[in-house]
């Protein structure tokens, strides 16, 4: 099957960390909004963020009134012996009228298939399904309808994948960039005891300290120095894999520069690669970010669907370190 011949308009999937961000995303032209409950059941379990059950129900109503969909991310791995919070999250997502849940854990997928068969299931990036056989496995065993692809594949690999799998794909186009395969990274918990998989946080703020040392701004995570910025340098949050480290006497951003993914120039290629939906990262970012990024991508997606050139959109203020990259979509990144 060659999906590129029947390329449809790309669906724009946008983040909402709060009810105000949900309304901002919908107002700025999101086709779909994704969000999580205010607990450890989702991978952006940041302090003060996310939705109560009441807020979700209100958010679904607002989105549906504006022809937008709501996806609920329940994409951490349930605690052994105590999966109730995750089961409850699936139940409540369905009860609140969510259009789909985004899941990563195999046990939770099995639970959802058994107890909520009508609730549409998407596979979270945290499940790290990076090849056609892994994706077929999730489609066969749990009837997932869409897979969020790990940020490790090139556009060519994505195109090859889409020709060989029975489900929709969703890819990240903007925001924070994991350089490690998602869902398979224990760097954060090695330093802080808290991880994306188990606690829904990476390099948590509770373990972050900034110290002024002379004219340097030093950022620390737990007991480890992650970076040190000179007076005129743009600072960054000490996400472990975006730190500056020393290898054989030379100091560099060995894993990744302090940068954000921005694939806005590649929408046409992604559309031709058979991708169904584009995902914007940033549930932890403010609604100002949501408004600006969603508006820009709304224009870009509309232009791409009409075969027009990309509008000139500057989003450098919203990216980490004021830099961006197309990441793994281009092979040279590796």
């Amino acid at each position: 099957m060659n999906k590129s011949l029947t390329a449809k308009k790309l669906e724009l999937v946008c983040p909402a960390g709060t009810p105000a961000s949900l309304r901002a995303a919908v107002d700025a032209g999101a086709d779909t909004v994704y969000l999580g409950f205010r607990d450890e059941t989702n991978a952006r379990n940041f302090p003060g963020l996310n939705f109560s059950r009441r807020e979700l129900a209100d958010g679904v109503a607002y989105a549906h009134d504006h022809n937008a969909k709501v996806l609920v991310a329940i994409n951490t791995f349930p605690k052994a012996g105590d999966p109730e919070a995750w089961h409850q999250a699936v139940r409540d997502a369905e009860a609140c009228g969510a259009d789909a849940v985004i899941l990563a854990d195999i046990g939770l997928l099995a639970y959802t298939v058994e107890h909520h068969p009508k609730l549409r299931r998407h596979l979270s990036v945290q499940a790290s399904a990076s090849n056609k056989e892994a994706i077929r496995f999730y489609a066969r065993e749990f009837d997932v309808k869409r897979v969020v692809l790990p940020r490790v594949l090139t556009v060519e690999e994505i195109a090859a994948l889409n020709d060989n799998i029975p489900v929709e794909t969703e890819v990240f186009v903007f925001g924070g960039l994991c350089v490690m395969a998602e869902g398979r990274c224990s760097l954060s918990s090695y330093v802080t005891g808290q991880s994306p998989n188990m606690n829904g946080v990476c390099s948590p703020a509770s373990h972050v300290r900034y110290e002024e040392v002379g004219d340097q701004l030093v950022s620390k995570l737990g007991e480890f120095t992650i970076n040190s910025f000179g007076e005129d340098e743009a600072a960054g949050y000490p996400t472990l894999c975006k730190g500056r480290f020393s290898v054989e006497g030379s100091v560099s951003y060995l894993f990744e520069d302090p940068t954000s993914l921005n694939a806005i120039t590649m929408l046409d290629a992604l559309m031709k690669a058979g991708v169904t939906a584009l995902k914007i990262e940033g549930r932890q970012r403010g609604r100002a970010y949501v408004t600006q990024v969603v508006s820009a991508f709304r224009q870009a997606v509309d232009a791409a669907s009409r075969g027009e050139a990309m509008p000139d959109l500057d989003m450098s203020l919203l990216t980490e370190g004021g830099q961006d990259t197309t990441g793994a979509y281009q092979k040279t990144w590796r």
């Binding site: 490790v152 594949l153 350089v179 490690m180 990274c185 090695y190 560099s252 894993f255 590796r334």
Partner: peptide
């Protein structure tokens, strides 16, 4: 602790993975 599409050994020597 982690696995990536990117090769950090190669990156440390300014080489491409290929």
């Amino acid at each position: 602790l982690a696995i990536s599409a990117r090769c950090y050994h190669a990156r440390s020597r300014n080489l491409h993975k290929d």
